[in-house]
């Protein structure tokens, strides 16, 4: 497939769109952003550069499990997210590089989550491998969201999508 040249604002628009889907709990649409072999990863806080096939991650979703994660979060029995928490994803410091494989984008993020009277903050940075689409826009081949926290405390869990 011919790879067109992409610009940073184009990637930023895409990432802002993704953040908006997540904050509005339009998770089915979020899952559709991924390619059929897409993956979503969160490394452990003490091994941020780890390899999910060798190290114990927090999240190691292939496309199937990512879809199931979304299905789960739509249910009332996904207790940690019922009722849905309120979240706000801030995405900044976007940088891109492009080669024959596609586009790599990096960004910083902060996600605020509020539920049961408790407010939690998830700071981190993400690395995306994106596949530019013919008519514009992208599909996500890989999203690796690294939390920039020493331990997952006091947040305790990542029941939302970062």
């Amino acid at each position: 497939m011919s790879v067109r040249t992409v610009t940073r604002p184009e990637v930023e628009d895409f990432l802002f769109h993704e953040a908006d889907l997540l904050d509005n709990w339009r998770l089915e649409e979020w899952a559709l952003l991924f390619t059929d072999d897409g993956e979503y990863l969160i490394p452990p806080t003490d091994t941020p550069d780890g390899d999910p096939r060798r190290d114990l991650f927090l999240v190691y979703d292939d496309r199937h499990r990512l879809g199931e994660r979304v299905r789960r979060l739509g249910k009332k029995t996904a207790h940690a997210e019922f009722p849905h928490s309120r979240t706000r994803h801030l995405v900044t410091n976007v940088r891109i590089s492009q080669d024959a494989e596609g586009v790599q984008a990096t960004c910083n993020f902060v996600v605020y989550r509020s539920k049961n009277g408790v407010n939690d903050v998830y700071p981190g940075h993400s690395v995306y491998r994106l596949l530019p689409q013919e008519g514009g826009g992208f599909r996500i081949r890989s999203k690796r969201a690294t939390l920039d926290v020493d331990t997952l405390r006091p947040q305790g869990k990542v029941s939302i999508i970062l």
Binding site: P44, D46, T47, R54, F57, L58, T151, L152, P154, K157
Partner: peptide, 8 residues
């Protein structure tokens, strides 16, 4: 296995 799940 390398990688600790530290939570609370």
């Amino acid at each position: 296995v390398n990688g600790t799940q530290t939570y609370c």
